[in-house]
Simulated assay, not measured.
Amino acid sequence: MIYIDMYINSGKIEFNIFRSFANNKKIIKRNELVLPNSYSTAQKLNYIRNLTNVFIDEYDIKYYKVDIGNFRESYNIEAKDFCDKITNSIKMQGVLEELFLSRGVMVWK
Score class of each variant (00 low, 15 high):
residue 104 G to A: 05
residue 51 L to K: 14
residue 11 G to P: 05
residue 99 L to R: 05
residue 61 I to K: 04
residue 32 E to I: 04
residue 87 T to Y: 15
residue 10 S to N: 15
residue 98 E to P: 01
residue 106 M to H: 10
residue 62 K to I: 00
residue 99 L to S: 01
residue 32 E to N: 08
residue 48 I to A: 06
residue 27 I to L: 08
residue 91 K to G: 00
residue 41 T to Y: 02
residue 66 V to E: 03
residue 71 F to G: 06
residue 29 K to E: 08
residue 89 S to H: 03
residue 79 A to K: 14
residue 1 M to I: 07
residue 64 Y to D: 00
residue 37 N to R: 12
residue 52 T to Q: 03
residue 25 K to I: 12
residue 67 D to A: 07
residue 19 R to N: 12
residue 72 R to M: 05
residue 51 L to D: 12
residue 9 N to C: 09
residue 42 A to D: 15
residue 23 N to K: 14
residue 65 K to A: 07
residue 16 N to H: 07
residue 24 N to L: 08
residue 76 N to F: 13
residue 32 E to M: 07
residue 29 K to W: 01
residue 77 I to L: 05
residue 80 K to P: 00
residue 38 S to F: 15
residue 91 K to Q: 12
residue 56 I to R: 04
residue 24 N to K: 15
residue 1 M to Q: 04
residue 23 N to I: 02
residue 95 V to P: 00
residue 12 K to H: 13
residue 68 I to S: 05
residue 7 Y to N: 14
residue 43 Q to W: 02
residue 15 F to L: 02
residue 43 Q to F: 05
residue 79 A to D: 12
residue 69 G to I: 09
residue 77 I to T: 08
residue 28 I to Q: 01
residue 54 V to A: 10
residue 36 P to T: 07
residue 28 I to V: 13
residue 32 E to C: 06
residue 1 M to K: 09
residue 30 R to S: 14
residue 100 F to D: 01
residue 69 G to Y: 05
residue 55 F to G: 01
residue 84 D to P: 00
residue 28 I to G: 06
residue 51 L to N: 15
residue 41 T to L: 11
residue 32 E to F: 11
residue 54 V to I: 15
residue 68 I to Y: 06
residue 18 F to Y: 14
residue 62 K to Q: 13
residue 55 F to W: 12
residue 56 I to M: 03
residue 75 Y to Q: 09
residue 2 I to W: 00
residue 48 I to E: 02
residue 89 S to M: 11
residue 79 A to L: 13
residue 1 M to Y: 06
residue 109 K to G: 10
residue 94 G to M: 11
residue 91 K to C: 08
residue 88 N to S: 14
residue 15 F to N: 02
residue 36 P to D: 07
residue 69 G to S: 06
residue 63 Y to C: 03
residue 62 K to S: 10
residue 64 Y to H: 03
residue 91 K to I: 02
residue 65 K to E: 11
residue 82 F to P: 00
residue 47 Y to G: 07
residue 102 S to K: 13
residue 27 I to K: 07
residue 88 N to F: 09
residue 26 K to F: 08
residue 97 E to M: 08
residue 17 I to C: 06
residue 93 Q to F: 08
residue 9 N to E: 15
residue 7 Y to C: 01
residue 5 D to N: 14
residue 1 M to V: 09
residue 38 S to R: 12
residue 77 I to K: 07
residue 21 F to K: 13
residue 73 E to D: 12
residue 58 E to F: 11
residue 13 I to D: 00
residue 12 K to R: 14
residue 87 T to K: 14
residue 92 M to D: 02
residue 43 Q to L: 10
residue 34 V to I: 15
residue 42 A to Q: 12
residue 85 K to C: 04
residue 24 N to G: 00
residue 16 N to G: 00
residue 82 F to W: 10
residue 73 E to N: 15
residue 56 I to G: 01
residue 70 N to R: 07
residue 25 K to Y: 09
residue 40 S to W: 05
residue 44 K to D: 05
residue 37 N to M: 06
residue 11 G to Y: 07
residue 106 M to N: 14
residue 11 G to T: 06
residue 94 G to D: 14
residue 29 K to I: 06
residue 58 E to R: 13
residue 81 D to Y: 09
residue 57 D to A: 07
residue 58 E to Y: 14
residue 18 F to E: 03
residue 60 D to V: 03
residue 16 N to Q: 09
residue 100 F to V: 06
residue 103 R to E: 11
residue 103 R to Y: 08
residue 53 N to P: 01
residue 95 V to W: 05
